[in-house]
């Protein structure tokens, strides 16, 4: 066997592996896509060809499921979380990146360490606390919880992007006549913009998909989409076609965001100095 042949075989082998992996990952999604357009009858058969219907998407918004409310809750909770998380995290990240703070490393490690605590461990104290101050089953409560979840992640991620901005550039702006605030507004924010956008999208996704806290801390008014999925377990068993339609509604923003991220994530990662 020549070296070239060996390389071709190796490439084919790699490609096969990738295809198999992709297939395994995509099967559930494809299944959901098909099921969402099937009738209650068709859904139990593995038919690839059937008469598609949009009926499921209507049903999930009607009584008793009322997915619209959950969609509204999810949107508000995720958006408000991001709107607060990114500016606060940017301030924190800038300070960590540019100033020598007392106990800087300790703080950074502790921020990260909060991520190591399993959610199930702290969910009970949260429940008790929220019950006592009346935050149970409120969107505000969920927003606070989600902020706690995404902030460490956002701070670390944005710090990485700001670290990538050469100090020279900021110092040049200061000598050119900018105050610290002007440096941040005119230089740091525009240069870190792809990074901030990437962080915002990641935070949105995390908040959007958050399940455990929403499950325990809400029951009626503030229920979010992932919890809403549980509604489709009726007396007659699992309503797979409705479940799938709701699943697509949950996933839809993810697809859009994934496309945006693909463009900016790379840009954010490779952004750097002009020497």
């Amino acid at each position: 066997m020549t070296g070239k042949q060996r390389k071709q075989i190796w490439n084919a082998f790699q490609l096969t592996l990738i295809l198999i992996a992709t297939f395994i990952m995509l099967v559930p999604i494809v299944w959901i896509f098909l099921a969402a357009f099937k009738t209650h009858v068709d859904v139990y058969q593995l038919k690839l060809f059937f008469r598609p219907t949009l009926e499921n998407f209507g049903t999930v918004f009607d009584d008793p499921y009322r997915l619209g409310e959950k969609l509204y809750n999810s949107t508000i909770v995720a958006l408000v979380t991001v709107v607060f998380a990114i500016p606060i995290a940017t301030c924190a990240a800038y300070s960590f990146s540019r100033f020598r703070l007392r106990g800087e490393t300790t703080m950074l490690v502790m921020i990260l360490a909060t991520q190591f605590v399993p959610a199930v461990v702290i969910i009970l104290p949260f429940f008790v606390m929220f019950r006592d101050i009346g935050l149970l089953d409120t969107r505000l409560g969920l927003i606070l919880v989600n902020l706690a979840i995404v902030m460490p992640f956002a701070i670390w991620m944005i710090k990485g992007f700001i670290d990538g901005i050469p100090l020279d550039t900021e110092e040049a702006a200061m000598v050119d006549g900018s105050s610290r605030i002007q440096v941040i507004r005119n230089i740091v924010l525009p240069m870190a913009a792809p990074g901030l956008l990437t962080a915002a999208i990641f935070c949105f996704i995390i908040a959007w998909n958050e399940f455990l806290f929403a499950l325990i801390l809400t029951n009626k008014d503030a229920v979010t989409l992932p919890i809403g999925l549980a509604l489709f377990k009726g007396e007659e068993g699992d309503l797979w076609n409705l479940l799938s339609a709701a699943g697509i509604i949950i996933m839809a923003p993810m697809f859009v965001l994934a496309l945006i991220i693909r463009k900016y994530f790379v840009q954010g990662m490779t952004m750097g100095a002009v020497r």
């Binding site: 050469p166 020279d168 550039t169 110092e171 040049a172 702006a173 000598v175 100095a273 002009v274 020497r275």
Partner: peptide
């Protein structure tokens, strides 16, 4: 006014 070694331009 300062000229930096790496120029410090605003990319």
């Amino acid at each position: 006014a300062m000229v930096f070694q790496n120029y410090g331009l605003y990319p």
